[in-house]
Amino acid sequence: MQDQLDHIEEYLNGNLSEDERRDFEARMKSDESLNEKVANHRSLLKGLELGFNRELKSLLQQEEQMQKQISIKKNKQIKLRNYSMGLAAAVALILVSIYSIRNQSLDSNELYFNYYTSYPNVEAPVSRSDDQIDNAYSFYEQGNYPRALKLFSKLNKENPLDPAPIFYSGICNLEIDNAETAITFFDLIQKLDQNKYSKPAIWYEALSNLKLNRKSRTIELLNDLIGDEDSYSLKSKELLSSLGQ
């Protein structure tokens, strides 16, 4: 069978010489079974080609589905992020306007509410492959702080040196009025190597202390933020002057 099969394939692929081809076609004419085998093999080759094409097609279709899902998820996250950042900015603007209109000495609690805005979620868009991470940040964005807190503590156990879950745990605690616990999380950030949450953590630790009416500790922390030309420095100077410094 093998030799005959080779011969049939060579014929169908056009690999026979002119003489061999003529000879083969003559045999096909006289041999009905050979003729049938050639026809069957032609169908087999076509069927094989179709089958493998279908597999490639389905591979690309799956990829297309995946790309669509990724872009839907991305859009959602961008929308949510824009929304929460926009909201935070609007709230900040309103509070600052209220403050400048009143422009008078305020007690610690009032000052806290004037300056406090929850920190935007800057983590989830880059970590979309992980469900647990996704959930923690999406609960955070929805304002479901107790549930977010549970997931952040899980994440923290898995990776104790990652500053993000520690920082957001602090914010969650502050949101649910656990300023004391929040301070322990912000303190933890300071024990890690310098990272993108180092400054925000000092700022929020200062606010936590302000909320607890610990003015001298607040002033101490705010003084740490003065120096660099950034928003934390500006906000700190402003808050310090409101505190009579």
Binding site: S43, L44, G47, L48, L50, G51, F52, N53, R54, K57
Partner: peptide, 14 residues
Amino acid sequence: YEGNLLENRIAGII
């Protein structure tokens, strides 16, 4: 992706 009946059957087997 589509051929005659016989070819489609073979494709399905593949």
